[in-house]
Design a protein around this nucleic acid. Structure first.
Lengths: 216, 216
DNA sequence: TCCGGACTCAGGGTTACACCCGATGGACCC
DNA sequence: GGGTCCATCGGGTGTAACCCTGAGTCCGGA
C-alpha cells in the first residue's frame, strides 16, 4: 500500500469550513500531499491526529472547545512525529511563546497563506521550523535558550477551563468536555480568576476575549 | 460571445487568500457560474465591480482600506444590478442594519459557508434576499417598513442592565446602581437574554462587547 | 532526595442566579 | 378605549456558582 515516494499526510483544523476548503484546494494540488483529516474544533483535531497520524497538522489558533495551544500540546505529547503548524489571523508574541513551548514549530499568518503555505508545510514535513511575520527562528532559539520567561500566566488546564467558561459552558459542561470532575473545574476556575484578578465571570470572559481565547 | 444560458458572474473580496481560494473552489464547480474577479481590499473590490459588472459581489465585512459597508454603498450606488452578499465571521445586529441600509441583500456567516453559500448566491442572482444566522427576511421587511422600531433590539433599561452585568456587577449591585429592585433587574436581564438568544452570562458579555457596550 | 507546582478530587456551607408563576401603572396609538 | 409595550415589583423553588479547607498523585528541578 505504501508508495515509493513517501506521502506527506496533512491534517486540517479550522472552525470555518471555507478556510478548510481553501487549504484543501491549495494543498491537495501538490503532488505527494494528502489531506487525511479535517476537524472543526480542537478536540476533534486531537482525535483525528491520533487516528490518522499525519506528518503535519495545520491548526487554527482560535478553535472551539479546545484551543490551538492545548491541542498542540496533546498532539505533540502522543505523536511527536506530527509537526504542528499554527495558522492564525493575528500576531502576538506572548501567544507565540506559549505555542512554541507547547510544541508547535510553525506559525503562519492567514494573510500570508497563499505565498507561504506550501513552503511552510514543506519545512514542517522536513521537521524544520517555519515562521512568517515578526516571528523568526531567532525568536525560537532565543526562546529555547532562556526557558522560563513565562510570567504567572495560566496553566494549560486553567486556560482550557477559562476558554470553555467564556464560550458559555457551565462548570459541569466543562468538566464533561474535559473528562474531569466538577470539583476540579471549580478549582482551576478559581485559580485562574485569582491569577487574572477577576472578581466575576464577566471579568473572566473579557480576559478570554482580550487574550484571544474566544471570539467576542 | 454571449451564451444562451446567462452566466452568473461573481466577484470575490476577502483579505485572506485562503478564504478566496475556498470560495473559488466551491463556486467555480457550479455550472454556469464564473468568478470574474478577486479583490483583497474594499477599494479594489469597487474598482473590479465597475470593470466586471458582476451579478453577485461577495464581500467580507472586515476589508482593508474600505470596509464592507462603504464598499457595498459604492457598488450599489453605481451598479444597482449587482447584488451584494456580505460574508463575515460574526453576527452583529447593528452591523446588519447598517449593511441593509447600505444596500446589501445577503448576509452569510463564514461558519455556514459550505451549507449555504450556493443557495445564497442563487438567491442573490435572482435578486432575492438571503440570510443565515439570527438574521431573517422578517428582519429585513420589518426594517424596511419602519426604520426605528427595530432601531434597537434591547430597551434602554435592558441595555443598561446588560452593560452593568458585562462590567462584572452582580444583579444586586446593578439594582443598587440603577436604584431599582433586584427583581426588576432579573426581569430585564432575562428579557435581554431572551432577545439576544443568550443562554449563558458569557453569551451576554460577548454580546455587550460586540455591540460596544463595554470594553473587552 | 527533598520540595514545589500542577493536576486531581472532596465536603460543607453560603450566596447568587434561573425559571416559573403572577401583578400594577403608565405611555403610546389606532 | 382597548391593545401593546415598557418598567416596575413579588413569591417560590431548584440549581449552579462561589468560598474555604484539606489532601492525594505525579513530575521535574535544586
Amino acid at each position: 500500500m505504501t508508495r515509493s515516494p513517501p506521502m506527506t499526510r496533512i491534517l486540517i483544523a479550522d472552525d470555518h469550513d471555507v478556510v478548510r476548503s481553501g487549504l484543501h484546494a491549495i494543498l491537495s494540488s501538490q503532488p505527494g500531499w494528502e489531506i487525511v483529516g479535517e476537524a472543526e474544533d480542537g478536540k476533534r483535531a486531537v482525535e483525528l491526529a491520533a487516528e490518522t497520524q499525519p506528518n503535519v497538522a495545520i491548526l487554527d489558533y482560535q478553535l472551539p472547545i479546545m484551543n490551538g495551544i492545548d491541542a498542540t500540546r496533546e498532539i505533540r505529547a502522543f505523536h511527536p512525529d506530527t509537526e504542528v503548524l499554527i495558522f492564525t489571523m493575528h500576531e502576538s508574541e506572548p501567544l507565540v511563546r506559549e505555542l512554541l513551548e507547547a510544541g508547535a514549530r510553525g506559525y503562519l499568518l492567514k494573510s500570508d497563506a497563499r505565498r507561504f503555505l506550501i513552503a511552510a508545510v514543506e519545512a514542517l514535513a522536513r521537521h524544520q521550523p517555519f515562521f512568517t511575520g515578526r516571528v523568526s527562528e531567532a525568536l525560537l532559539s532565543a526562546f529555547l535558550a532562556n526557558a522560563h520567561t513565562t510570567g504567572d500566566l495560566l496553566t494549560h488546564r486553567e486556560r482550557g477551563v477559562v476558554q470553555l467558561i467564556a464560550e458559555g459552558r457551565t462548570n459541569k459542561e466543562a468538566a464533561q468536555l474535559l473528562g474531569i470532575n466538577l470539583k476540579t473545574v471549580e478549582t482551576h476556575r478559581a485559580a485562574a480568576m485569582r491569577k487574572i484578578k477577576a472578581t466575576s465571570s464577566a471579568d473572566l470572559v473579557r480576559y478570554a476575549i482580550r487574550n484571544k481565547l474566544v471570539e467576542p
